[in-house]
Design a protein around this nucleic acid. Structure first.
Lengths: 347, 347
DNA sequence: TCTTCACATGACAACGTTGTCCAGGCCCTA
DNA sequence: TAGGGCCTGGACAACGTTGTCATGTGAAGA
């Protein structure tokens, strides 16, 4: 009876007990254990208890990998965002998690770090894990690589920015309208030379917000000088240089519109170090923005609703909804706190 | 040759092509496809190309669930923290992700919401997925439920707080020392009646920080009145009430030590609404803390290092390290920005 | 008492992959 | 030309689970 380990396929991985072990110990068949574990009907209380005891004694826990293989559904979804550490994505992440949890699914997530190649690598790794669905905040602008996956049944919803070169569900904020409203707020307080500092032009939202800026300027009959617009990385150094350049130009801007939360934070820092305050409105709300002096006026988007809406949509698809890909646009909200009301000032 | 679908086990799940399909199309054996997919040696360039073409044509992607089942390792780790939306955990989350990525592993994560039952549910779900390892920020104080899992080979590292009633690796900040230093800073600026507002007493760090508070008071020969100490939920209402009560007491506190970032944020808000400023030092750094008036003095912990250290430790274990569970304590850093220097004031 | 039937239970195949092992073909050398 | 070794390729089992189906049992009904 001495079990020879010699010809085992080797890995063994911790030697966890399997249903077979449980069955042997409880003196029942394999399928009966399966039934108990899954709470299926058709097991005598007596038998059930014997099985339960064996499970307890062996510390058995069902191997979901095997289950997945058999059933086809993994009860997990993937979320690819730009940076897990960015506070803007925290509430979004959490909202997606809550919806997933309500559907009994786990959440696998990762950061693209804004790199399209890394986004693709991550997404494909998730597909290999056979996640049931994907929520993606695109870093790249070409998502044709996803088409075979989507065709194979991986439900996919994009958030915050639309997919590139492919048709898919997308949930986003009204970047254009929000920026227009924010810039109009500055114009309403007498500003005529307004700077726009935004994210890289590759990013959809950066362009939309810039479009909103131009629209507001145009509606007010104001010229929009190229020197007042700067798109690029949101790294603090880049933003600092851009803002400083606008403030020190021959015709300095008297107000700045910051294209997202990263830009806003750096802009606030730069302005705080200047002798003469300049008006500022930022896209995205920021914790403690209300406690700055003056309070920071922002165009807020609701990250949690963004995430929740996307996740709801995803699970609707997983439940079989089959309508054409749609675009859901959520409104933004201008939160006036004072920083947009600083009067224009010229040396 | 008409394939009868009738007796299929039903789910089919998108009908993805398998290695068998690829093999058939390329006119080679199953194992040869496997070899190509895994980059194993022993395949003629010619054969390899035929296989690659078939893979391309069919849009084949290896099913990692099946692979996992066969190999035993899932190349994924689980991270259970308190709240994905809490900005404190963002950098930690990201740091863990980076380490996982460097090891080719995916990250599954979820929020316990501070609920021990939910923590356990989540952890066990992760174990059922057979994650290779777990990083847990404990919500509960009894982790004996994890012992069978750990015994079965699930590497586990606790972060931020030690595990309850079980011996395991833990990486945390020096809460005691940090709080003591923060409170000493206040004492050094002349404060004698100092309030402490912290998280629920069930939470290990809350107690450690309170211990630090008492130590600093005692070292300065100051009494520590019970009315100056308040532990409980970090919900804004609770914190607001606690802070307000301390400020409006017959013998009001002249300074407050806030036990974590959630408490600090609310405390700042309450103080901003008061006529007379009171000194404040908070545990955990906060974005924009430097831009408040006055700048917010904090005891900062390095969340990213916390996460990176824990993840490194986890993967060392996965690589076979087998030393006794250890406790790693990272130092905190007092960042003086002014809010701790406000002079004591009495009506 | 014999059928009928419901119900509890277990044997077995299949999910898609990888490890093991064997077969056949080729080239090289004696 | 025979023998040997190397290289490529494929057949097969196994990973742990679940769906299908067959079997056995006892109770209810005729």
């Amino acid at each position: 009876m001495a079990e020879t380990e010699s010809r085992r396929p080797e890995p063994r991985y911790g030697n966890r007990p399997t249903m077979k072990d449980v069955a042997a110990r409880a003196g029942v068949g394999l399928k009966t254990v399966s039934r108990v574990v899954n709470g299926e009907a058709g097991v005598t209380p007596d038998t059930e208890q014997r099985v339960q005891e064996a499970i307890e004694a062996l510390g058995f826990r069902r191997n979901d990998s095997a289950r997945v293989l058999r059933k086809g559904r993994t009860a997990s979804i993937g979320l690819v965002l730009e940076d897990l550490a960015d506070p803007f994505y925290g509430p979004l992440n959490r909202a997606v998690e809550e919806v997933a949890r309500a559907h009994g699914a786990l959440l696998i997530n990762g950061s693209s770090a804004g790199d399209p190649a890394r986004e693709q690598e991550l997404v494909l790794a998730l597909c290999a894990r056979r996640v049931d669905g994907l929520i993606v905040i695109p870093a790249g602008d070409d998502h044709r690589y996803l088409e075979p996956e989507i065709a194979a049944g991986v439900a996919t919803v994009f958030v915050d920015r639309p997919a590139g070169k492919t048709d898919a569900d997308v949930v986003l904020s009204d970047s254009f309208g929000g920026a227009r409203e924010g810039v109009a707020h500055l114009i309403g307080h007498g500003h005529r030379r307004i700077g726009f500092v935004g994210d890289q032009p590759r990013i959809h939202t950066a362009n939309e917000r810039l479009r909103g800026y131009y629209a507001a300027m145009e509606e007010a009959g104001l010229p929009a000088d190229d020197a007042w617009v700067s798109l690029g990385s949101t790294a603090p150094e880049r933003v600092r240089d851009a803002v400083t350049a606008m403030l020190d130009a021959p015709e300095p801007v008297t107000a700045i519109f910051a294209g997202n939360n990263r830009v806003t934070v750096t802009a606030v820092r730069v302005l705080a170090g200047r002798e003469h305050p300049v008006a500022l409105v930022g896209f995205d709300d920021i914790e403690l923005a209300d406690l700055l002096q003056p309070g920071l006026t922002v165009v807020a988007q609701d990250a949690a609703t963004l995430g929740r809406t996307a996740a709801d949509r995803l699970f609707r698809r997983l439940d079989g909804a089959n309508d054409a890909p749609a675009r859901v646009e959520l409104p933004t909200r201008l939160i006036v706190r004072g920083s947009g009301e600083i009067q224009p000032w010229t040396p």
